[in-house]
Design a protein around this nucleic acid. Structure first.
Lengths: 118, 118
DNA sequence: CAGCATCCCCACTGATACTG
DNA sequence: CAGTATCAGTGGGGATGCTG
């Protein structure tokens, strides 16, 4: 993600980092314990492998996610939330609760039930 | 902002709403009490009037900001955070603290001092 | 002071195919 | 299974000028 050069506030820096379309849902899945590329890919509706990797890399650059690579075949890599990632997750968690509220108002309770959120 | 059609999670809905480049800083300024278009414009470095209005409108559509128009000339309009907006502000507030942390690590303490954040 | 209309660019994203 | 490379589209956002 492109970073702006003039800031009014530090929050713009963080926002530029997590603006990416899939960033919050990636953090959400990581927090749930999903840790491999392929399981992340399967758990996130509509994401492509390219974007998944790109977003994970950006999140790692800013110390929001960590990565552990294991030796040998088949290849195995675990992604996880860092302490900082867990702090950002708190913000994502608020987005989730507001999202549920918005969907309820919009008569999308069926979706929420499907997902086991109601 | 374009909304996706397939969701893994309600948080993606909220994220699509606040993804806009200036949305968080607008919420931040509104929470500080900045309420008119022109004062918002002046307080946010780099924003254009077009984007400011567009983002305010989108935030209003989802009940995150409210708008009060006064009669008479000169025109006067006040924007403000709704209850929902204040909840989202909690998330923005987390972004702010992480942003400060990131800037400190990146030796940008001078910027923070200029802004009175240190 | 508040807000709308247009034109235009490029950054973000998606699709597809290939490699260790 | 994890990751890279390339090409193409599109819509988000910047600039500018006009209106109530």
């Amino acid at each position: 993600m492109k970073q702006r050069t003039d800031y009014t506030c530090p929050l713009e820096l963080t926002h530029d980092i997590i603006r990416g379309k899939w960033k919050p849902i990636i953090l959400w899945q990581l927090n749930k314990g999903t840790s491999s590329l392929s399981s992340l890919e399967k758990s996130i509706l509509g994401i492509s492998r390219k974007m998944l990797i790109q977003h994970l890399k950006e999140l790692a650059e800013y110390g929001i996610v960590g990565k552990k690579t294991y030796e040998g075949y088949p290849l195995k890599v675990d992604y996880f939330l860092t302490d900082r990632g867990r702090r950002i997750f708190e913000a994502v968690s608020i987005l989730q609760s507001v999202g549920i509220e918005l969907m309820l108002e919009d008569n999308r309770g069926d979706f929420l039930r499907e997902k086991g959120l109601l």
